[in-house]
């Protein structure tokens, strides 16, 4: 819906931001992700689609090593971010997560003021030297999160008091505030109503100008609306990956076609 044809044509010239090769993920004895190789481009929205439990969220969490926080989870294979292996022992997962921001399924603002929610990341990473700089970051992030006009008069009121859609945009603004290079979104609209969803989708499209966005979604319409690249996961395998228009119109794999037309999933 938001796709500009001129951008479509230039896709192939874009740099590769993340390159995953033969990634395997195990939860205890369960083999959750099998041999996934995918190349995610910069300044592009990439959608992961697939039925529940197909491993798309698990794979997403590999990209910023959030799976490290789960004791029984084990990741094998190679994931390069700007040609650096993020699973290299020398890489600090905490630093990595500042570079690869994440937005979660349910809006999870901290029990702090709206201002402190945004300022949390910059404070931790020491991005602002003065209060004025911090104010500036907060305002910029809230503007980029398309929520500034709604909250500018109540920055000190708690973030938990906002509506669901506002909370999710606040969380996106919070993720942007640390100046990440990649933004991972795990079903960011599943807890939102259609109006809030439309606002968030519009925002995702705008974010593409500065970030590489990876979004997991259950809604194929959403994937078609917001993404330029789509990856279809099924039972832990990456079945098909390509331009969104191609996946939705002329899928190569019969499983992709079955899922898109609603026969499996």
């Amino acid at each position: 819906m938001y796709d500009a044809p001129s951008l479509e044509n230039t896709l192939d010239q874009k740099a590769i931001k993340i390159a995953a090769t033969d990634v395997q993920v195990y939860y205890g004895d369960t083999h959750a992700i099998k041999d996934v190789s995918v190349q995610i481009q910069d300044n592009t929205v990439t959608a992961f689609i697939g039925p529940s439990g197909c491993g798309k969220s698990t794979f997403l969490r590999c990209l910023n090593r959030m799976n490290d926080t789960i004791d029984i989870c084990r990741v094998e294979g190679k994931i390069l971010l700007d040609n650096e292996d993020i699973y290299d022992p020398k890489v600090d997962p905490v630093q990595l997560r500042a570079k690869v921001g994440m937005v979660f399924q349910k809006p999870n603002p901290f029990p702090k003021s709206i201002y402190d929610n945004i300022a949390y990341g910059p404070k931790i990473h020491g991005l602002a030297r003065t209060k004025a700089e911090l104010d500036e970051i907060v305002e910029k992030s809230l503007r980029r999160g398309a929520i500034w006009d709604e909250v500018k008069d109540r920055l000190q009121s708690p973030g938990t008091g906002l509506s669901g859609g506002q909370q999710q945009r606040l969380c996106i603004a919070r993720a942007i505030a640390t100046e990440p290079e990649v933004l991972l979104m795990d079903e960011p609209c599943s807890a939102l109503d259609p109006i809030a969803t439309a606002q968030v989708e519009e925002l995702i499209d705008e974010l593409r100008a500065n970030f590489s966005v990876v979004i997991v979604t259950h809604s194929m319409q959403q994937a078609a609306r917001v993404s330029q690249k789509t990856a279809f996961f099924h039972l832990g395998n990456l079945v098909e990956y390509g331009d969104t228009s191609q996946i939705f119109t002329t899928p190569v794999d019969p499983r992709t076609e079955s899922y898109i037309t609603g026969r499996i999933g």
Binding site: N64, M66, V94, L96, K99, F110, H125, C171
Partner: peptide, 25 residues
């Protein structure tokens, strides 16, 4: 857990998460 995930996802360390998010909550 979503509070902790949110904080860790922003690149906070475990102790920062505990001190600034978990304990206040």
């Amino acid at each position: 857990q979503s509070m902790r995930d949110g904080s860790l996802g922003l690149g906070a360390t475990k102790s920062e998460t505990i001190r600034q998010v978990v304990i206040p909550a």
